[in-house]
Design a binder for these strands. Structure first.
Lengths: 175, 175
DNA sequence: GAAATATGAATGAACG
DNA sequence: CGTTCATTCATATTTC
């Protein structure tokens, strides 16, 4: 029986880089990585933040499970109609909580293509462990240099492309 | 003087009618309805306002989770009655880390990027340039500035010490 | 209007 | 694996 949690408080949160790598691997068609693969991935990701194989495994499981379908299509969570308020405004270009990775939009050349190739003397750096902020699906980028989601007051309303759907992240709600 | 955008609703808010129906169903049902049930409920609720299955699902999840969080230090034993009553509930003991504007306005930030340190002479990894936003309201860092009395749990997280196991039952997560 | 609170939503982890 | 739980984040709402 498992049923034992550690001090169970801290939930692993992927750093932007980790997420990026994970997404990439996921996209590469390599569905569920083998245990060996996981090990390697974990190793690589370790260089960008604290992580364990279990985290990687869970991530892939969740990703796959939740990447089923979007059965939505009808405005999902939007404005409540029925009462007052008829602001059919489509300007709600709130960026969710996008991680400013697009900043360093460098080619995949020396970026991090080989997930398991870098066997240098890289030490896990806690600096990579910055804030946490989940989400950011595969199809999300192209937002300028955004700071933190909460910084909206700060950045105000920069010229974001308002063409992206606010509710396109509505995948399967995991049931 | 920044930040003055009007709020555009982006999150679904149940209409009174919807809420009533939901509450009713919640009270009779055993908790989380199945996918099929959700569909039906959504269908029903759709007549009283814009809604999506995802919303219904979330609602039930939240409802359940929250009703299972009454008081934790009242001396009462497992008084786990979760019915219809979540009004004046003090959802949590965790503080709401408010974000003072002064914090947000940090232009350079004394706590800024010291991410450097190690100059990888061989493999420069731009991804490590994970700069941190002036805000970083997350659960890590910014111990001094944000120093809230409740930030006790903020400093620990998962960083350098591994006195704890991320998972204790993990040996073979089954592949 | 800012702070506090209520609550919808995202997601890592766990269970069967 | 599919589903459910728990935790946390973001935002709508209420209060002062």
């Amino acid at each position: 029986s498992i049923g034992h949690k550690m001090t169970a408080r801290q939930r692993w949160t992927p750093t932007p880089v980790q997420l990026q790598i994970l997404e990439r691997i996921f996209d590469q068609g390599t569905g569920t990585p083998s245990k060996q693969k996981i090990k390697e991935i974990t190793e690589e990701l370790s260089q960008h933040g604290e992580i364990a194989e279990q985290n990687v495994y869970n991530w892939f499981q969740n990703r796959r499970a939740r990447s089923k379908r979007k059965q939505q299509g009808g405005g999902s969570s939007g404005n409540n109609n029925g009462e007052s308020e008829v602001e059919t405004e489509v300007e709600a270009l709130n960026e969710k909580r996008v991680r400013p990775e697009s900043l360093l939009s460098l080619p995949d050349g020396n970026n991090n293509n080989n997930v398991l190739g870098t066997t240098t003397t890289t030490t896990p750096r806690p600096e990579d462990l910055c804030f946490q902020s989940p989400e950011m699906s595969s199809d999300l980028h192209l937002l300028g240099v955004l700071a933190n989601p909460r910084d909206e007051h700060l950045v105000g309303k920069m010229g974001l492309s308002e063409s992206y759907n606010l509710y396109d992240h509505v995948e399967d709600y995991g049931m």
